[in-house]
Amino acid sequence: MSNKTMTFNPNANKDIFSKINLFVQTHTALMALIIAVVLYVVTIIINPRGLNTVAIGNIILLTIILSIPAAGQTMVLIGGGMDFSVGAVMSSTAVLTTYTMRGENGHFITVLLLSLVIGAAVGLLNGVCCVKIGLPAMIVTMAISNIVTRMQYILTQGILSGKASPLFSASVKSKIFGVIPMIVIYAIIVWPIVFYLLKRSRFGKQLYMVGNNSGAARLNGVRVTKIQIMSYVFSGMLAAFAGMLGAAYMSTARCQIFDDYAYMSLIAVIIGGTTFAGGSGTYEGSIAGSLVMVLLSNLLTTLNPTQPVRNVLNAAILILLLVLYNRGKAVRQ
């Protein structure tokens, strides 16, 4: 009898481990949220003065801004691609916003339409090159980023110029009840659209199908290339809009100001449970992932290490998170 218990003990352990693993894999959004809470608690323990309304408001604001390019990134990743150009698109529309508004009210609609067109055009170009021509997404979107960045310099000659309109800035930054930044209004508009697309439309269903098994999707009657290109277009448009909000938040925008958002959105989305392999992921996960990214940078600021140390820490924590998350699922049980 003792022999038997001996034999199957490792299995019992494995069972608990696999249960935890299963939980992590099926509740990725929740896991990201738990990580966010841990990060925040650590930050507050290190620096209790960080617990104030201004800091909290800032966290909300930055999370919302990041959650918007992350939405596009989520779509593209679900469809089996990757979009490294969201940062460049954000920077471009940010520069465009300040350049056009010049600190005056009343250009919002013009800027919005122009930005969305630019975002859609970049997305279309990304989509066509990656999907139709079949070049590797990472390289294509980076190359296109470079072109987009050049445009910023052509427009502004690299000089910091213009300013977001005061009204627009206020609609992003001013606080409701002194805590919650007005930008939540934009989130209330954008988030439901993204949820609708992913969860309540056949576009979403088809996107998941395409990312999971494009051959099967095609034979089922899905236009695979069309769906994938559309995911890039949506990503471009969302990034374009986020760039405007970013400009409103910063008031001024130099060239390449938001380039970091390319990799930040990618990591936020991965932390939120979307896989590189395509076919799975949720937007709630990506929002939670965005929160994790913001809180992580918050924590690093609190620690206030020298820049190189900060970079190393940042990278180490991210690698740890990614390893935890994207632990390849067993091919077969």
């Binding site: 056949r202 088809q206 199908m209 034979l219 089922n220 899905v222 076919g279």
Partner: peptide, 22 residues
């Protein structure tokens, strides 16, 4: 290769024909 979306749910898999159509 040609039919199953293995990481998607059973419900989505059954609905896949409908998803592709309308």
């Amino acid at each position: 290769k040609e039919a199953i979306f293995d990481v998607r749910t059973i419900a989505e898999n059954i609905f896949a024909g409908n998803s592709a159509k309308e």
